[in-house]
């Protein structure tokens, strides 16, 4: 029955893909629960936490800041050009601030930090796995979950709101700089419109998104690094998978939170 085979093949492939995805989601969820349980109980490692906070928060500032600046400016330009078609150029400050704070600030900061941090976490943990450092740590009376994974996940969840706050401010300032410098907006009027249209709900949702993105990007990095196998090739695979998973999770959770909050 070759005809049936050709018909079934894509279905079989689709089914296998769906099952594979479900298995990954399930394993990630179990990993997340284990990580949270370990993070919530002592021993804690404050020095490791501070180290991760510096690595994730402080050293991500330049890339997050630049991304927000350029995006905010480009956004203002596009809204101005688009708005001209129906004489709505004056919406630039309002639309810019809402777009930045609600969506672009958290999403772009999340993606940039995921590119930097998830990959680094996956590569470091995968190398430790390959070189038996994770096994060695267990024999040295220390739980790698608590020593390596918990500080990364806590630090990332804490530092992303800070980074997103910075991204929001710089993004709005980018729009402001372009609008006042190139498009002839009045500086004081621009800022007062921005303030008028920005609501508490926007800021809260922005920070909630940030914390969730911070959690999932560290989770993706730790999960793929911790579970890696197969030498140098395995380390490479873990790094790629971590970034792809982090990106997908960030965009997925962004959609979910947006629908829940701005219903």
């Amino acid at each position: 029955m070759p005809a049936v085979d050709t018909l079934l093949k894509p279905l079989i492939a689709l089914g296998a893909f769906a099952l594979g995805m479900l298995a990954v989601v399930g394993r990630l969820a179990i990993f997340a629960v284990q990580a949270i349980r370990r993070a919530a109980t002592p021993p804690w490692y404050p020095a490791r936490l501070l180290e991760q906070m510096a690595l994730i928060g402080w050293f991500s500032l330049p890339v997050v800041g630049l991304t927000a600046l350029f995006t905010g400016a480009a956004l203002a330009q596009q809204i101005y050009v688009g708005g001209q078609r129906f004489s709505a150029e004056s919406t630039v400050p309002a639309v810019t601030v809402i777009a930045i704070v609600r969506e672009l600030g958290p999403v772009l900061a999340g993606l940039m930090v995921a590119g930097r941090v998830s990959s680094a976490m996956a590569a470091e943990l995968a190398t430790m796995r390959v070189t038996e450092q994770l096994d060695a740590m267990v024999t040295l009376r220390t739980d790698p979950w608590r020593y390596l994974i918990a500080p990364r996940i806590i630090a990332s969840s804490m530092m992303l709101p800070f980074l997103v706050l910075v991204a929001n401010v710089i993004g709005v300032l980018g729009g402001y700089a372009l609008a006042t410098g190139r498009l002839g907006f009045n500086a004081a009027a621009y800022l007062s419109t921005t303030r008028r249209y920005l609501e508490t709900e926007d800021i809260v949702s922005s920070l909630v998104k940030a914390a969730v993105f911070g959690f999932v990007l560290a989770l993706a990095g730790c999960y793929h690094g911790f579970r890696s196998s197969g030498g140098a090739a395995g380390v490479g695979r873990a790094t790629t998978d971590a970034v792809v998973s982090a990106f997908v999770l960030i965009l997925l959770f962004n959609l979910i939170i947006t629908i829940l909050v701005f219903n």
Partner: peptide, 9 residues
């Protein structure tokens, strides 16, 4: 000294 300090400073 990792086992003695259990990774702590």
């Amino acid at each position: 000294t990792f086992a003695l300090t259990k990774g702590k400073l």
